[in-house]
Design a binder for these strands. Structure first.
Lengths: 242, 242
DNA sequence: CCAAAAGTGTTCTTACTACACCCATGG
DNA sequence: CCATGGGTGTAGTAAGAACACTTTTGG
């Protein structure tokens, strides 16, 4: 009631729809997110997640991939880009009613982006610093980044997406460091090794070895072909679920 | 890069934003979803998920709760209503560009809804029938319902939300039947009993018993106060994660 | 007494933790 | 030859699966 009437074309309240990206990477022993310096009000001079309007004939996921490519040069086939959640509080943008659909991607260590030719335009910032203070980020991006972080942490348990943080070829120790940084917990190297090499389809050995981390040469692996990790790599204490 | 310029107020492409609800319940040994018969084109006469426009000053979750109350009489405090995902393919509604934010709720067995006074307006339909054929539901609601079903199944493993399908006071066997119906797998009654009574905070005993299911009297329980199930109640073979 | 459902106990197996120990390189 | 990290072996423990068995009602 009211539904059918309101659903009449031409009589609906207009919204702006954007996509925002939570792009995470691991660099210098820290988990970082890509942020953009806002050049215009509102929140002029503050950092914000990259994002932009969905175009009139564009799918949501296509808009997210386009933004990803614009900001990082990565294509949608190269990284796993997944929908995170949508945010639409009426006052989240002071200018107009905006609903944003947030996407999450875990990317390998990239060169510092300089889209727009402005060195101060975009940068990777440690997630810990960005979330330290609730209002450090523009709009409701603190919330979005928090949600993205929690999703990324959970994904590492049950999916092989942690490899997305690594170079195409990586050692078990490099992968373990990713887990340790994202979860903020030390993991037993020996048990971790057994778990990841034992999970079918997670890793495929290249046959090559490397000594780039010192010590005995380590096997190099590539990401395997599975999308599920079984058995999962579990954190000690699971976080609240909802 | 186009972003700042396009983000200028007044120059954004207008969208309609709706919320759609995946309301699931268990009745007569079947998992069912609430569907509405469409009275107007497009998809006139077809079944669709309940939903409607987000109002100009309304939060997304508030819109979902309002729709929930309109369709079922349930309030947002009574049931757990969670955001599922957003869908915005350009051609998903032939009349205009619509982005919908889907919400999921697991509800107890309710009387057949008759909102609008029309008995044919809304009903509970078995999910299996609704998903049998890809185009049985209007718009992209097949996809949305599939996603909601998969989310509900996953939720039962790690959260106590399965109790949402039960009456306020229920027996372990009644809860087990919910799991069996949602997952489509038989579960060992004895091991299930141990798991759910052993998971801290999942169930609180009322001290009452009932013989309404025949046999030896069974303890009655209420939903406990935890939001995480540890240890989880696992299905045999986990589904692909992404 | 018997059927039916509730609930407990027991055994086997899997997977995790912790940690001892050996391996292969660079310096 | 030794420091460093890579990798395997093993013992103890937590939790799941399968299933025998006891308990308590209704008829």
């Amino acid at each position: 009631m009211g539904w059918l009437k309101a659903y009449d074309p031409g009589s609906y309240p207009p919204f702006a729809v954007t996509v925002d990206l939570v792009l995470l990477t691991v660099q210098q022993e820290e988990l970082s997110a890509l942020v953009i310096k806002r050049a215009e009000p509102p929140f002029k001079g503050r950092w914000a997640l990259p994002g932009g309007f969905v175009r009139p004939e564009e799918d949501l996921s296509a808009a997210a991939e386009r933004e990803l490519t614009e900001e990082t040069g990565l294509s949608g086939e190269m990284v796993h880009l997944e929908q995170l959640a949508s945010y639409g509080t009426p006052d989240r943008d002071p200018r107009m009613r905006v609903v944003t659909v947030a996407y999450l991607a875990l990317t390998p260590n990239l060169p510092v982006p300089t889209a727009g030719g402005d060195a101060a335009y975009a940068r990777w910032s440690p997630v810990g610093e960005l979330l330290e203070v609730p209002r450090r980020l523009a709009f409701d991006h603190h919330r979005i980044l928090s949600d993205g972080l929690e999703r990324a942490r959970a994904k590492l348990e049950y999916s092989p997406l942690g490899t997305g943080f690594c170079q195409p070829e990586f050692t078990v120790a490099e992968l373990r460091q990713v887990y340790e940084i994202v979860w903020g917990t030390p993991l037993d190297p020996r048990n971790f090794h057994r778990k990841v090499t034992g999970a079918p389809g997670f890793l495929t050995a290249t046959g090559q070895t490397t000594t780039r981390n010192g010590g005995r040469p380590a096997q190099l692996y590539r990401r395997g072909d599975t999308s599920v990790l079984y058995p999962p790599i579990l954190r000690r204490e699971p976080e609240p679920f909802v």
